[in-house]
Amino acid sequence: MRIAKVILVAVGATLTAPLALAGDTPEEDRKETVEYFQQKFPDVPLEEFVNGQYALDEDRRKQWESMSDFPPFEFAVAEGQEMFETPFANGKTYASCFENDGIGVRQNYPYFDTEKKEVITLELAINRCREANGEEPLKWKKGPIASISAYMASTSAGKKFDIEVPNDDALAAYQAGKEFYYTRRGQLNFSCASCHVQNPGNWIRADLLSPMLGQVANFPVHRAKWGEMGTLHRRFTGCNRNVRAVPLEAQGEEYRNLEYFMTYLNNGLPVVGPATRP
């Protein structure tokens, strides 16, 4: 970590004259994060980090590759497409709510809405679209919303994440997400970083810990443990529970800010959701 910082400062100093303090900006955070994980895992190509544990362990990767002919999320993608294309009672469709009719846009989510001053995740946008068209919102963690999100991600496969932090309000949301990621919670006293920054590549029982870099890029996921699809906020809930912390509201401000911070770090990395995980 310190080495990464020194290298970055040295490189930066030769390129630009008045360099902001290292780590002051999201972009500095992102560069240092990339540097940190590349030093930790020198054999893993940068683009591979989006595959989480499969980038770190050969056996797990082989099991994963053997599933790729019949991925368990295929049904959800098909179902999601059907729902996405079926008009609401008012005759409009989801396409009317999104840029480019909602095709190939996953890499821009979540984004910061400078008027509403809040982070808009893809799932939030899906439900707001429904409500704007007189439909009931969907439940946040699984089922139809995960399928629609999976379909939309599938149309964005390979596109590079491009999350922006447009103003100070957005920066505050980013910082709040960062603080959440690094603060220890629950009776077991773990932060997200305890596992995914300090211990990626290590095992907790039969679970292989994934690196922070690339997390989020694969959502929504079909987990063997769930036996079905789930959204990122469903996963957040589970992580919090594991450390005996009371989970927060799915799509509440805290989790949306967390998602914003985590996804920003993936800028330049490809969308690989939907995906499968143990």
């Binding site: 211990n199 290590n202 095992w203 907790i204 029982r205 039969a206």
Partner: peptide, 16 residues
């Protein structure tokens, strides 16, 4: 303890 430590005859031990 086995979540993170190898101990004795414990199965599925962690490496943290």
């Amino acid at each position: 303890c086995l979540a993170c430590h190898k101990i004795d005859d414990g199965k599925l031990t962690g490496t943290v």
